[in-house]
Amino acid sequence: MTVPLYVQIRRGIEAKIRSGALPPGARLPTEMDLSAQYGVSRATAQRVLNDLAEAGLAIRRRRHGTFVADVMRQINLLNFVTPAAAAKGVPGRHEVVSARIVRAADAVLSLPGASADTAVVELVRRKLDVREEPHSVERHVVLFAAAPDLMNENLEELVTLPYLQRRGVPVDSIRLYLDPVVLDEDDALLLHCETGTPALIRRRELRADDGSTVEVVTTLVRPGTAEFFLELPAPAV
């Protein structure tokens, strides 16, 4: 029995989604793209994308496109400390909640080793996914002496680790923490959750070769939207 072409096309896309070749948030081909690639009608291409959406594998957004669904994002914690992976980030966009230069004592996060009057740059952003739904809240506190021009950067697109490395800041080590918390009123509002909901914060510290801390950044991911994991090669026998 011959499998209809639209089913063959759909299965091919499904296989890429399930293998991770098309990760959550990735943009799928448009109806026009599918029509040209497979030589099918616009109606057939539309059926392929609609079938994927009905199966929960894709999300169709009017005038924006079709994206791989993100029911439960799996996040490799190693990506949080790897510049190349961190630069890719989660698909979506940032909203800047606040950005200012303040004393370390007044910053939203404590910068280990910094005296109370040390100048720091404080940046708070909210990440929205491809569906324009809240994904996470990020808070950065960066030593001003290491990044005096940070406020002149495109703060919506900024990835601080590669930025600091481009500036020649001697980042010697990266330490990662996981802190269990419950959402306070401000974070619950930003993430569209209930106050008091249990959550997990990833906290990263960048340390210079003299042991001082250059940056502290926390990422509070919306509860129920992600699973965190570490995957390492098995040791040789």
Rank of each mutant, 00 (worst) to 15 (best):
M1A: 03
M1L: 05
T2V: 11
V3Y: 00
L5I: 11
Q8L: 11
I13C: 03
I13M: 09
A15W: 01
I17F: 03
R18W: 07
S19Q: 06
G20D: 06
L22A: 07
L22K: 13
P24A: 11
R27V: 02
E31F: 02
D33L: 04
D33Q: 12
L34G: 02
L34V: 11
Q37N: 09
G39Y: 13
G39S: 13
R42G: 03
R42D: 05
A43R: 11
A43C: 01
A45N: 06
Q46M: 09
L49T: 03
N50W: 12
L52S: 04
E54Q: 15
E54Y: 13
A58Q: 05
I59K: 13
I59C: 06
I59Y: 02
R60E: 12
R60Y: 08
R60D: 09
R62S: 15
H64A: 15
H64S: 13
T66F: 08
V68C: 10
M72S: 03
M72Q: 08
M72R: 11
N76H: 14
L77M: 13
N79I: 01
T82H: 07
T82D: 15
P83C: 13
P83Q: 13
A85P: 00
A86V: 01
V90P: 00
V97L: 15
S98N: 11
R103W: 05
R103N: 14
A104P: 01
A104V: 01
A105W: 02
A105K: 15
S110Q: 15
S110V: 12
L111R: 05
P112T: 09
P112Q: 09
V121A: 14
L123N: 05
V124T: 12
R126G: 03
K127E: 04
L128I: 12
E133S: 04
E133C: 02
P134Y: 11
P134L: 07
H135D: 10
S136L: 13
E138Q: 11
R139D: 11
H140Y: 15
H140F: 15
A145P: 01
A147M: 08
L150S: 05
N152V: 10
N154I: 01
L158V: 02
L158P: 00
T160M: 15
P162C: 06
L164W: 01
V169S: 02
P170R: 10
P170L: 12
P170H: 09
V171T: 03
V171R: 05
I174Q: 14
L176D: 00
Y177V: 00
L178E: 08
L178P: 02
D179Y: 11
P180F: 12
V181F: 07
L183T: 04
D186N: 04
D187N: 14
D187T: 08
L190Q: 10
T195Y: 00
G196W: 05
T197G: 01
L200R: 14
R203N: 08
R207L: 14
A208K: 13
D210C: 06
S212Y: 07
T213H: 04
V221D: 01
R222N: 00
R222Q: 03
P223G: 08
P223D: 11
G224L: 06
G224P: 02
A226N: 10
A234M: 08
